[in-house]
């Protein structure tokens, strides 16, 4: 299991290939990559992501550990960037490997749902003359409800 918090870009394809190598006992590998998109109003120049060094790594490790406890995972990978990111750049990725696809898909969704609202990152959309913090959505909080036997 690998957790990386970094400013630098990553190559999602290369990461996925590396992750998939040597998984003798896993029949399924699922990955998700989050990409910086323009704001709804358009005209975004960049996205800035702030985080809480120390807590970020602990929170992600705890979330990944919970995923391993719930599903029979051969391996899991979480990469999350912070700092200034351009539109189209990868923000984060998760990958999960398991014997069967249901566990790999579910664990990847679980990781995503928890990373969204329980890992201490804050996104800011930077425009040419303005900037605004992205607000958390109620549905992101509600999404945690489906995993309700309590991973907190």
């Amino acid at each position: 299991m690998s957790v990386r918090v970094q400013t630098g870009c990553f190559d999602a394809g290369a990461e996925l290939n590396a992750f998939s190598e040597g998984l003798a006992n896993a029949g399924a590998v699922v990955s998700f990559t989050g990409v910086v998109r323009d704001r709804d109003a358009g005209g975004m120049v960049a996205m800035e992501i702030e985080h809480y060094p120390g807590m970020t790594e602990r929170a992600i490790a705890a979330i990944a550990e919970e995923a391993r406890r719930r599903w029979d995972l051969a391996d899991a990978l979480v990469i999350h960037r912070h700092g200034r990111l351009e539109i189209g750049a990868p923000i984060m990725m998760v990958a999960t490997a398991s014997r069967h696809r249901a566990a790999a898909f579910e664990a990847a969704e679980f990781l995503m749902d928890y990373l969204k609202s329980r890992a201490p990152f804050w996104k800011k959309e930077i425009g040419p003359e303005d900037a605004a913090w992205v607000e958390a959505k109620d549905e992101d909080e509600a999404a945690l409800g489906r995993w309700s036997s309590g991973a907190e």
Binding site: G34, Y52, G54, M55, R58, A59, H80, I91, M92, M112, L115, K116, S117, R118, A119, P120, F121, W122, K123, W133, V134, E135, A136, E141, E152
Partner: peptide
Amino acid sequence: DQELADFAAPLEGAREVAFFPPMTGG
């Protein structure tokens, strides 16, 4: 101390308290 808490939580022994808006990772 880098663990989510609530406003009623006791501070005894705490070294670090962080305040922030709801998180927007992922």
